[in-house]
């Protein structure tokens, strides 16, 4: 029975690491000043935390039940693929929506104006 206890302790450590990561990144929601810095917290640490939890679940079902659960693998791949996409989408649409970044340096604003002018000139 000691083999099972070893597996369980590894799984619990991984789950706790993932949980603490996702809790800390939620704290980042409270502390950071604007959407863009918050999206840093949301995309990176939450993704890593959830990946830790899902990997722990995968290991648990692999070693305790001798069961390779393909659904879980699909879920891991899906989270891995979609998390950066949502981060990029939210940052982009927030900028187009008109939320100003809080820092001093902003090299995008002038270029976006230029591109819009070029596009409207093409329309006419």
């Amino acid at each position: 029975m000691t083999g099972r206890e070893t597996i369980e302790s590894i799984v619990v450590v991984m789950v706790l690491i993932g949980t603490v990561l996702s809790l800390l990144s939620s704290l980042g929601f409270l502390r950071f000043p604007d959407v863009y810095t918050r999206s840093h917290a949301a995309t990176k640490s939450i993704t890593l935390g959830i990946l830790f939890i899902l990997l722990a679940t995968f290991l648990y079902f692999l070693f305790v039940h001798d069961q390779v659960s393909v659904r879980l693998l699909l879920g891991i791949i899906f989270v891995f693929l979609t998390a950066p996409v949502t981060g990029h989408l939210i940052a982009r649409s927030a900028y187009r929506y008109g939320v100003k970044p809080s820092g001093a340096q902003d090299e995008l604003a002038a270029d976006l104006e230029k591109a819009k002018k070029r596009a409207s000139a093409l329309d006419k």
């Binding site: 502390r31 950071f32 000043p33 604007d34 863009y36 810095t37 970044p101 809080s102 820092g103 001093a104 340096q105 902003d106 090299e107 995008l108 270029d111």
Partner: peptide, 9 residues
């Protein structure tokens, strides 16, 4: 917090 966020190309 001691950060200077910004956008660069």
């Amino acid at each position: 917090l001691n950060i200077q966020p910004g956008v660069f190309r």
